[in-house]
Amino acid sequence: MKVMINGEEKTFAESMSVEALLTDLGIDPRKVAVERNLEIVPKSTYADVAVGDGDRLEVVHFIGGGC
């Protein structure tokens, strides 16, 4: 399946959950927000929401900082 992630096309062997996709990419699911096809995916549903061929994902990392 082909998926657009942050504007870059990626290819995966099969459909998977948001959580599995993030893990496959080496991303800690606890530290990102995910938008799938223009809708925010609640963190509590990452394991249940399937990513399929043609989906468009935006993954935003949280970065701490300050004084």
Rank of each mutant, 00 (worst) to 15 (best):
M1Y: 09
M1D: 04
K2I: 07
K2F: 10
K2P: 08
K2W: 08
V3E: 00
V3T: 02
M4P: 03
M4Y: 09
I5H: 04
I5A: 06
N6W: 09
E8I: 10
E8K: 14
E8W: 09
E9A: 12
E9H: 12
E9K: 10
K10F: 06
K10A: 07
T11L: 14
T11G: 11
F12D: 02
F12C: 07
F12R: 02
E14G: 10
E14H: 15
M16R: 07
M16D: 03
S17H: 02
S17Y: 02
S17T: 07
S17E: 04
V18F: 01
A20P: 05
A20Y: 04
A20T: 13
L21V: 01
L21N: 01
L21F: 03
L22G: 00
L22R: 00
L22N: 00
T23H: 06
D24Y: 10
D24F: 11
D24C: 14
I27F: 05
D28C: 09
P29G: 03
P29A: 04
P29V: 03
R30P: 01
K31C: 15
V34S: 01
E35T: 08
L38Q: 15
L38M: 15
E39K: 15
I40A: 12
V41Y: 04
V41M: 04
V41I: 12
V41K: 02
V41P: 01
P42L: 06
P42K: 09
P42T: 05
P42I: 04
P42D: 07
K43L: 07
K43D: 04
S44D: 14
T45E: 13
Y46G: 01
Y46W: 04
Y46D: 01
A47P: 02
A47Q: 11
D48N: 11
V49S: 03
V49N: 02
V49Y: 01
V49E: 04
A50I: 08
A50V: 11
A50R: 09
G52K: 10
G52I: 08
D53M: 10
D53N: 13
G54M: 08
L57D: 02
L57V: 04
E58M: 09
V59R: 02
V60C: 13
V60G: 13
H61W: 14
F62M: 12
I63A: 14
I63N: 12
G64T: 13
G64K: 11
G64I: 11
G65I: 09
G65D: 13
G66I: 09
G66A: 12
G66Y: 08
